[in-house]
């Protein structure tokens, strides 16, 4: 009987230890988890009022310098129609946030989750108070970026129309250029003809660059309008190529006709330069685009210079080597 009691009490002890250890492990896990997730950390609350609650949700992480310091606690639409968002932040970070800190929404990477971020503010100012209302700043979104791209797209469209008129002028069968080409058959083979070959090669290179430029834009799925404009531009430049090859075969175009083409090409290069400046300013996250267009411009400029120096126009050195650079028109303000 005593023996049986001993066995039972031993089993009870073992079960007891098993339960105690199990509960203890569970408590320990809960403790570690809660300490890690700051459940028991002291909190404070601050507010901000964005124009819309569209980018926010309750429980959304709030970050400071990339570290989670709290979460969005409550989103309310107040009586006067304003959005008020309450953030629950861990108190130990309070001293790092100063009174002119601001709140903004950023993305973790290009397609990552939207995160609420708090800035540090001016370090010389006192730490933020519990219940403070912070300012809200909108960071540029892809939509805004595309809206900003509109001027660049507009420029590309202007450029396109300029190119269209250039191609039309060159390809008109009754136009001055075609008539001049068909009428003049005084082939001067061997006289600096190598320069013309270089010119045609460069023009081909330009076309390839423009094609790459347009394709790259399309791959980035950004600014479809600009991409299609540039594609059309490439097609127009393809039209110029047979013309330049014809010049190579037939030679002897008159000075004024080729000079007119040079003026058009020069105008094109200026327009391209302005478009490239827009792109480099507005699309820093689209690497390579501005560089590609810049290369294109440089090639076109070289082409113009080679044309100016080619035997086709009886030229020697380009006009660019004369004088001391373009001079800006005076700022007169002749307003009545």
């Amino acid at each position: 009987m005593v023996e049986r009691d001993d066995v039972v009490s031993s089993m009870r002890r073992q079960v007891g230890w098993f339960v105690i250890l199990g509960v203890g492990a569970l408590v320990l896990v809960l403790l570690v988890a809660s300490m890690r997730s700051n459940v028991f950390a002291k909190k404070f609350y601050i507010f901000f009022s964005p124009p819309s609650a569209a980018s926010f949700y309750e429980g959304q992480p709030v970050k400071f310098q990339g570290f989670a310091i709290g979460r969005v606690d409550q989103i309310e639409l107040q009586e006067e129609g304003k959005v008020r968002i309450t953030m629950e932040l861990i108190d130990r970070y309070r001293n790092m946030l100063h009174q002119d800190a601001i709140v903004r929404v950023t993305k973790e990477g290009l397609i990552g989750e939207q995160v609420v971020e708090v800035t540090a503010g001016d370090e010389n100012k006192p730490a933020i108070n519990d219940g403070a209302l912070l300012g809200y700043e909108t960071e540029a979104s892809l939509d805004q970026l595309l809206a900003d791209l509109k001027p660049a797209v507009g420029n590309a469209n202007v450029l396109l129309s300029e190119l269209a008129s250039l191609a039309k002028w060159m390809n008109d069968p009754k136009g001055d250029v075609r008539l001049a080409l068909s009428g003049v058959r005084e082939v001067t083979q061997g006289v600096r003809g190598d320069r013309l070959e270089v010119m045609i090669e460069q023009l081909t290179g330009t076309l390839v660059h423009l094609q790459k430029f347009a394709e790259e834009l399309n791959q980035q799925q950004v600014a479809h309008g600009l991409s299609s404009s540039l594609k059309e531009m490439t097609a127009i430049l393809h039209d110029i190529r047979p013309f330049s090859e014809a010049m190579g075969k037939e030679g002897g175009a008159t000075v004024e006709h080729v000079n007119a083409m040079l003026r058009n090409l020069d105008m094109l290069s200026k327009s391209l330069d302005i478009v490239a400046s827009d792109l480099s300013e507005l699309t820093p996250e689209l690497p390579g685009l501005a560089r590609e267009s810049r290369t294109t411009i440089e090639e076109i400029n070289r082409l113009v210079k080679n044309l100016q120096g080619s035997w086709l126009i009886g030229g020697d050195k380009g006009q660019g080597s004369k004088g001391g650079g373009a001079v800006a028109a005076p700022a007169l303000d002749l307003r009545p």
């Binding site: 200026k270 330069d273 302005i274 400029n301 004088g323 650079g325 373009a326 001079v327 800006a328 028109a329």
Partner: peptide, 12 residues
């Protein structure tokens, strides 16, 4: 310089 000036004046 000449190229940039020419483009700059055109932008002006």
């Amino acid at each position: 310089m000449k190229e940039l000036s020419s483009n700059g004046v055109a932008a002006m």
